[in-house]
Every structure is written in C-alpha cells, then in structure tokens.
Amino acid sequence: MVRTAVIIPAYNEADTLPGVLAALEAHVPDHDVVVIDDGSTDSTANAARAGGATCLRLPFNLGIGGALRLGFRYAVEQGYDRAYQFDADGQHDASQVSALLAGLQDADMVIGTRFGGDDGYRVGRSRGLAMGLLRRMVGQICGQRFTDTSSGFRAFRRPVLEFFATEYPVEYMESVEALVLAVRRGFVVREVPVVMHDRSGGRASTRNLRLAYHFVRLLIVLLAGDPGRGQRRRTQS
C-alpha cells in the first residue's frame, strides 16, 4: 500500500487548523498528517494533536520554506512514498487532494493550479502583474509553461521528497524557486487544475513592500543561474 503524508506548515493557525484537519480526516482518512508548528505562540501544536495529527515543533520561526523542508525530511525519514503540502489556513480544499495525487501517476511533482479551474480565481492588479512576470520567467528557464508558479498545493513522489529534504529553498516566496529547482534537477513537473478557497483565517502573508522586495530578490536569484547549485556544493563540503 502506498503511504502518503500530508505536510502542513503552521504558524499561529490554531483557529483554522481544526477545520482543516477535520476536512482531511473526512476526505482522506488514510493519509498521515504531520503539522510543522513553525514557532507558533498560540496553541497550534495542541490544536494539531487534538485533531489527530503528528506535530513537530520548531523552536523558533523559520518561515514557510524552513517548515516545509523539515516536513519533507520527516516524510523521508518515516519512509513515506509520497507527500503533499496543504495550507493550515483553509485555502486548500481536501476534496481536491485525489485530483492532485492522480497527477503523480505520470509526474514526479504535481502543482495544483488556481487558474484553468472552474472557479476563476482572481488576484489583485499588482499581484497579478508580478505573478504574470514570474510565470513568464519561470517558463523561459524551465522550457515549460506553468500557470500558477506560487501555488502551495503540491504533491511529490519520494525522489523529490529526498531532494527537497535538504535542498528546499528557505527564503520567502520559496515556492517559485522550488519549482525551478525541481525542473532543473530533471524531475517531471506538471500542473493539475484545482479549486481553492479564499483564506478562511490569517492574512495573505504578503504586504506590498515586502512582496516587492522579495520579487526583486527572486528575479535576481532566478537570473543568477542555478540557485541551488552553490548551496548543494556547500552542503557536501
């Protein structure tokens, strides 16, 4: 039987987490949920355990990339065959998981895209512009078209998990970088249209100025060539 892990990074999500865990339990009861408590100051860890999830607590906040990397590492160490990320704030729909995982049949990594789905996900103007530019750049670099480069609804086969367990980018807006890394590594990445909700709790973790800064940083990282190669070399030494 294929063992599947659900990786949920959570930073102060005690309010929304119970609902998310309940939805997962209802739709995919045989998946093992691991919540990465990213240095929360509220009762996120208790909420996770009350909801029947495994909870790993980071001693301080590492940001979503750091939390995810720990999740991948955990999934690898526990011998899971595949895993997928899931948001703690209720943005992702547990009913879409089967569609996402079905994509893994002919891919190493699957991204649930908000575009091309039924609900016509809409974003603000500047954000839309930034995403459009990113999309084009990523398309250039990868030689493959992606409609939703920053979606956090993603599933991975074990080889990708092993790769990301040590190499997952830890800076903010890491999802785009991770996508490029995976493609450069030669993994087959494909998109699957899914339906997503508006966030039920928390805020979008982006304020405009910060978004702008990280957007520029990301452009530099992407343009500067393989962002992972240097890191890889350093980890080996």
Binding site: C55, L56, L58, P59, F60, R69, R73
Partner: peptide, 11 residues
C-alpha cells in the same frame, strides 16, 4: 539545528 531539535523532540 532547529530542524534537528524538532525531530528529536518528536511528536
């Protein structure tokens, strides 16, 4: 180290 600690603390 933080990752290691979280794993060592365990579930």
């Amino acid at each position: 180290l933080a990752e290691e600690l979280a794993l060592l603390r365990g579930p």
